[in-house]
Each structure stands twice: as structure tokens, then as C-alpha cells.
């Protein structure tokens, strides 16, 4: 499965989110790759992904996509990100 870490610009926040999400994926024992996308390319990328992680504002901007979108408030909180991925993947 591909997990998208989405931020406004794709160079800062989502890179941090990706680093923490990769750690969470390992801890949950999931077979998943985490990729970074900016808000402009995220809708297209979501077509072939299984889960989107992003902030509240950007989730609203992203609108309806066919895959689960889970909001993360604290991008540095390993526990919150683990819960978000577990929720989004049905674990």
C-alpha cells in the first residue's frame, strides 16, 4: 500500500510527517510505502494510494477522494501518527 503524506509545499511538513509515518509503519508491521505530495498533486496521487495523512486545513482543501484521509494535528507525535495509520488502514 502507498501512504501519502500531504502538505502545502511538499518540502517541509510532509517530509517530517513521512519520517514519522515510516517509523509507525515499521512498528505496526505494515507492508506500506510512504510518499510525499504537495496539495497540488495530492488529488492525482490519491488515485493510486491507500491512505492520505495531512493537516485539518489541507484535508478540507483536498475535498472528497476515494481513499481514507486521516488528519494529524501534531506531526511530531509518534503515538498520534501510529493511531492515525492504524485507523486509516483498519488495524
Amino acid at each position: 500500500m502507498r501512504i501519502l503524506a500531504v502538505c502545502g509545499m511538499g518540502i517541509g511538513t510532509s517530509v517530517l510527517l513521512k519520517a514519522n509515518a515510516e517509523k509507525a509503519v515499521r512498528e505496526l508491521g505494515l507492508d506500506a510505502e510512504v510518499e510525499v505530495a504537495d496539495i497540488g498533486t495530492a488529488r492525482g496521487a490519491a488515485a493510486t494510494a491507500g491512505l492520505v495523512l495531512t493537516s485539518g486545513e489541507l484535508a478540507a482543501e483536498l475535498g472528497d477522494v476515494d481513499i481514507p484521509v486521516v488528519v494529524v494535528a501534531n506531526f511530531m507525535d509518534a503515538e498520534e501518527i501510529r493511531r492515525a495509520i492504524a485507523e486509516g488502514t483498519g488495524r
Partner: peptide
């Protein structure tokens, strides 16, 4: 970037990652 995308650059309590596109 904050005007456009909101304050999500506040990535954790008390901490902001200020940045724009390359």
C-alpha cells in the same frame, strides 16, 4: 504560504516550521 494554506506549519505544540516552495 501561511496566508494560502493556513497555520498547519505549526507542526507540534509550540513549534513552527516556516518554509515556502523552492
Amino acid at each position: 504560504a501561511v496566508d494560502e494554506y493556513g497555520p498547519y506549519i505549526v507542526i507540534a505544540p509550540g513549534l513552527a516550521l516556516a518554509h515556502a516552495r523552492p
